[in-house]
Design a binder for these strands. Sequence first.
DNA 1: AGCACAGCAGGACATTTGTCCCACGGAACC
DNA 2: GGTTCCGTGGGACAAATGTCCTGCTGTGCT
Lengths: 201, 201
Amino acid sequence: MIRVLLAEDQGMMRGALALLLGLEEDIEIVAQVPTGDGVLPAALRERPDVALLDIEMPGKSGLDAAAELREHLPECRVLILTTFGRPGYLRRAMEAGAYGFLVKDGPVEELAAAIRRVLGGERVIDPALAAAALSTGPSPLTDRERDVLAAAGDGSTIADVATRLHLSESTVRNYLSSAIGKTGTRNRIEAARQARHNGWL
Amino acid sequence: MIRVLLAEDQGMMRGALALLLGLEEDIEIVAQVPTGDGVLPAALRERPDVALLDIEMPGKSGLDAAAELREHLPECRVLILTTFGRPGYLRRAMEAGAYGFLVKDGPVEELAAAIRRVLGGERVIDPALAAAALSTGPSPLTDRERDVLAAAGDGSTIADVATRLHLSESTVRNYLSSAIGKTGTRNRIEAARQARHNGWL
DNA sequence: AGCACAGCAGGACATTTGTCCCACGGAACC
DNA sequence: GGTTCCGTGGGACAAATGTCCTGCTGTGCT
């Protein structure tokens, strides 16, 4: 029996996947968690063979959870399952020690197959996505540029961001300008969109 | 047998739901479509009893598809299934003649139950969501304000929007200013966020 | 006929945003 | 010891944005 932990915030998706995987004779869902923070405790308790992690979740992201798992439960194989095939996500997933990266667009049959392959030590990655990740390259943004861009992307003014990050307005302007330059966009909104699209935030 | 049409763009979700509903003894998935445009043709061909429609899909939205169904196949009951419980979505779903409105957060068991209830002529709506929809009120935006806000919310400049909508820059500025005022926000980005959040776009 | 309101457009003005300078301290890497 | 980044700030300036006003048309309602 392959013991699987399932982390996914959307109730219906989580329930459907659990039910579905439960139908496989060799797979057993030993834990279901709806948040990123719940992953490590549940994993330490249940010791699953494979962790199936969504990225966008309340609390910690699935990528952060993957990094935690590698540190505290390295024998547990991580399989990322996400809505968005962002190049930066794939890159970060690999850096966090994930064994596989699936997008939710594919057919469901892929899922059980991927779990088995990952358990066998194989890497499971959509080739097209891998190519995109390589051609996009790593994020050109520095840490602070990323922070500022993330904080400014929701319509906050420069003054807001400065207050929130304890920076001067000048500094915020400078980081934004630099982020806009590096992303080749025309303003902070496009820059934030672009960065988000690439999985850089 | 309840004949169900399933429209959902995300492959894994669609597959999982189809499999799941197929397990129910009284439910049969007679069509699966990944786009809004595919709904009506498939419905006319298969004559389902219930149409289970996602809202955010490529092509037509599920809300538009619901309106089409009411016109061309009024005996088919529409059940909206969406990720986002936006007040404006619920309002528009009701106006489009939907019988039920479910968010994907709930448990999967809800789904089959909702299908049966909708077929029985019952309305299925999350009470909390209904309250939110009523308290939020209808969209205060005029058609053009909505168009302009939607076109400007992605980082486009005023000049871009003016060109795209064949308006003068002055007009675009005026609509934006008015939309910002009506939403009680500070700039176009916040206004667009707010409007999107309420399901007004 | 009168009124309100949507759609459209222009002008004037203040504020915000984006760009390009400069500067300083610290860390990392020769 | 020098060089090159990053993080942090300031100032000056141009461009974009947001506000407020005026004006015109058409439609619908009373």
